[in-house]
Amino acid sequence: MATSVFALEPLWLALLLQALAAVLLFLIGALVVGYLEHKVLAHMQDRLGPMEAIWHGIGQLPADGLKFLQKEDIIPTAADRWVFALAPAVAVVPGVVIIAVLPFGPGLWLTDLDAGIFFALAASGVTVLGTLMAGWSSANKFSLMGGLRGAAQLISYELPLVLAAAAIVIQAGTLSLPGIVEAQHGFTLFGVPMIYGVPHIIGLGLFFVAALAELSRPPFDMPIADSELIAGHMTEYTGMRYAFFMLSEYAGMVILSALATVLFLGGWYPWPGVGLPEGAAGMVLGFVITFAKILVLSAIMVWLRATFPRMREDQLQRLSWSVLIPLGLLNVVLVATAKVWF
């Protein structure tokens, strides 16, 4: 198996490059998916979306970022200053951290942790701390309700997410993300090379639904339900701090899509059994393939946003505890049985 391209000497150079790559990937991924959402949503709604900034509005999000930078940073008098100021950072950091273990191509990962999937899911759970901190510290009732909804949602949906991933871990026999891609590369279903997504169709569905809920994307966007809670935990935020929350949402779409790509869609290989050329060409091709898969999944998330109304808080909890979690447990049992059988 390939080693990371960042396994360089001396160590400080490797660390510097890794940090730079993580932040760049985080920003670029969020911008690309943000632009994708602007455009796909617009065309689904019979309008053009951003058209003015450079060509077809590709400069819209950087321009928005610049605008946010110039905005006044308002902290409400009654707010708990430190927690309020820290919350956006707490929401963003887990995203950057998870990027460290995500493989974007052969050798294109920052580090290959033995417990990679475990680490990624654990870190993604930290995001909600930012939501909760923001909700509590804003000294606003709408924010508080948004924060609490966010926390309740995460507790319910972390389980199906982990259960869906656990089934893949049983199948692949490794927790390492590049390891899972390689194991999937050699996987055959009745002699036909197949991605895990086909036999694990239940798991894929569970993972995708739970990922939507984890990201507070529609139809699970109750924590920020704009018609009820104005903007939930983000109500009191302005300027760059608000932009950080938006950034973490879009980056979250990239990260969870990337995880789904690795777990279910064969990672950087176009199809299991179909290899990539050696060296730099393979890396570039692998990166393009990975990113294409990520964008397809993100586009589906946007599509759902364009068509679905929002669920209600109690309906969301019921869906998780009485449908998704039993289904996830069943899935694990089925996969484990199948694994022993064959």
């Binding site: 949503l41 709604q45 019979d46 139809p219 364009a306 679905f308 929002r310």
Partner: peptide, 16 residues
């Protein structure tokens, strides 16, 4: 009404 339930598309259709 769609907008209030969180479905953001109907409003664009009906305003068209």
């Amino acid at each position: 009404f769609g907008l209030e339930l969180g479905a953001i598309t109907p409003v664009f259709f009906s305003f068209r």
